[in-house]
Amino acid sequence: MGLSFARHTIFLLPTIGARKKIKKEGNAKMVRKNRKPKNRNAKLMTAANMPPLYHTLPSEEFNRGKSEVLKWLAERPALIEYVYDQAKNKGEIIYDATTGKWQGVYWEDDDE
C-alpha cells in the first residue's frame, strides 16, 4: 500500500507491534506508529484537564473578556507559573536587582 505523489510513491509500513496485531486480527488497515510521548511540562499538562468551553461565544464576535477558555486558563496558577518560567528562561523578561522588579527586555521608560 502506498501513496503516490507525481512520480514518487511513499510506502507506509506499520510498526512491528502493529504488524503482529494486523497478523493476529487479519485486518490490513493502517495503524498509527506508537511513539514515546515527548517530555511534557507538568504545569502545562494542567490544561489537558480543561472541560469543554467556548473561546468565542456562539453567535457573538470574539471578545477576550468573554472567553471561557481564557478565564479558565487564567484561574490556574500552574499555567501562570509556566508562562512566567518560559518568559524568564527565554530571556523575554529580566530582573533588575536595584529596583527588585522584573521587566520586558524591550521596555523603554518614556520618563528617562
Rank of each mutant, 00 (worst) to 15 (best):
L44W: 02
A48E: 04
G104P: 01
A97R: 04
P77C: 07
M30G: 08
S59W: 11
V83T: 10
S4I: 08
G2H: 14
A78D: 13
A74S: 15
R76C: 01
R35V: 07
I93T: 01
D85M: 07
R64A: 11
F5S: 12
E108I: 14
L13W: 03
A87H: 03
M30Y: 11
A48H: 04
N63S: 12
A74L: 13
R40D: 05
L13D: 07
L70Q: 01
E25L: 14
Y54T: 03
R40V: 09
G91H: 02
W102P: 01
R64F: 05
K38H: 10
K20E: 08
N27G: 04
T15W: 07
S59E: 12
K101F: 05
S4C: 13
Y82W: 13
G100F: 05
L44V: 03
Y106T: 02
G65H: 05
T98M: 06
H8E: 14
D109F: 09
M45W: 07
A28Y: 09
V83K: 15
S67C: 13
N63P: 03
A6H: 11
L3S: 09
Y82S: 03
A48W: 04
N41S: 15
L53K: 01
Q86C: 06
N89W: 06
A28L: 14
K88E: 11
E68W: 01
A28I: 15
L73K: 01
M50K: 00
H55K: 13
R7Y: 07
I16R: 15
L79F: 03
T99N: 07
H8N: 14
R64E: 08
E81H: 06
R7I: 03
L79K: 02
N34P: 02
W107M: 12
T99A: 08
H55G: 04
T56I: 12
